[in-house]
């Protein structure tokens, strides 16, 4: 029997939907071992976020209201104290939040971490985790042999848990602190707001690469296609580094991992580090003037063309087909 503590992710006082991937994982472990899972809402607005978590089958929703912007140094002591002696697994979704926070919690608990896992298996009550390594070119199965096991789960591999109905009781937990927090100060979080779907949750993603050549071209050439498809926009590292688009659009080993129904790579060569972030997509389309570009290794459809001609044409064709219904 293994009980799981899920650490929820809050943003601007609200619950981030990616939390539900960790909830899905927790349900699997609880069901497989005959245990239960609780969810901890921590941060500013935790009480409000807790109410959004009540309908997912948790035994309890724990609330730790902590004011001010997120800092791992402020959250880790409370999470570790809540977990110690009570849970066999502490889990979160492997967003930059989960990746920043959970290893810190683990070290406090003298625990090992299985990060960014793609699957969990329960055999005879023992958990093992499947994780991508080498930019997704090898999967390793591992066990974590410490009293508490700390896990972050890949959002693309654990589908958001759906509500189960019912209402989990909430409980306030006491806040612990650590002097490390006195030497760090949250200054700001700058985000570029977009009306488009979130990259990690979109059904369709259209990404642009270095070949777009400028921010202006992303705007005038790529964005109309993105919007015609109702897609999220992504980019290669080269496009982000060159400042064509904000860094948080980067798809890849070091950026976001996406697995939409349709991924369109425009002027992207398909370096190993880029493929790591998108090769789980259902259908992959490449538009590239070089038919030998490595993106061909994963593409289902490849249009060999100059993107500056092909993309506007594709946008018009999609709009035409959509208008026909």
């Amino acid at each position: 029997m293994t009980d799981v503590l899920v650490v929820a992710e809050l943003l601007d006082g609200g619950l981030r939907k990616n939390t539900l991937s960790a909830v899905r994982f927790a349900r699997q472990v609880a069901e497989g071992t005959g245990g239960a899972f609780d969810v901890l809402a921590i941060g500013e607005g935790a009480a409000a976020a807790a109410s959004a978590l009540e309908g997912y089958g948790a035994r309890k929703v724990l609330v730790a209201e902590i004011e001010g912007g997120y800092l791992a140094e402020k959250y880790a002591p409370t999470i570790a104290d809540a977990a110690r002696g009570t849970y066999g697994v502490v889990a979160a979704t492997a967003s930059t939040y989960g990746k920043d926070l959970l290893p810190r919690v683990a070290a406090r608990l003298d625990a090992g971490v299985a990060s960014d896992i793609a699957a969990v298996s329960v055999e005879g009550g023992t958990l093992s985790y499947k994780r991508p390594m080498y930019a997704g070119n090898v999967f390793g199965w591992c066990a974590v042999r410490s009293d508490v096991q700390v896990v972050t789960v890949r959002q693309t591999e654990f589908e958001a848990a759906e509500p189960t109905g019912g209402s989990s009781p909430t409980e306030t937990v006491s806040i612990s602190s650590d002097p490390a927090a006195d030497r760090i100060e949250f200054i700001s979080l700058e985000s570029v707001k977009s009306e488009r779907p979130e990259l990690t949750e979109a059904q369709i993603v259209v990404s642009g690469g270095r070949a777009l050549k400028s921010a202006e071209n992303f705007h005038t050439v790529l964005e109309p296609l993105v919007d015609a498809l109702g897609a999220a926009m992504g980019a290669s590292r080269a496009a982000c580094d060159a400042g064509y688009v904000p860094n948080d659009l980067q798809v890849g080993q070091t950026g976001k991992v996406v697995a939409p129904k349709l991924y369109v790579a425009v002027g992207i060569s398909g370096a190993i580090q880029h493929l790591a972030g998108m090769k789980g997509s259902k259908v992959i389309v490449a538009i590239n003037k070089d038919k030998e570009a490595p993106i061909a290794q994963v593409a289902d459809y490849f249009l060999v063309a100059d993107l500056f001609a092909a993309v506007p044409e594709l946008t018009a064709e999609i709009n035409r087909v959509k208008a026909l219904g």
Binding site: A72, E73, A76, K99, D100, L101, L102, P103, R104, V105, A106, A107, R108, V113, S115, D116, R131, P132, M133, Y134, A135, D178, P179, A180, A181, R183, I184, Q253
Partner: peptide, 17 residues
């Protein structure tokens, strides 16, 4: 591809990160 050692070190040292 773990992305964990730095965070763990900071905690063990009691340092901010």
């Amino acid at each position: 591809d773990s992305n964990t050692a730095g965070q763990m070190l900071a905690e063990l040292l009691g340092w901010p990160m």
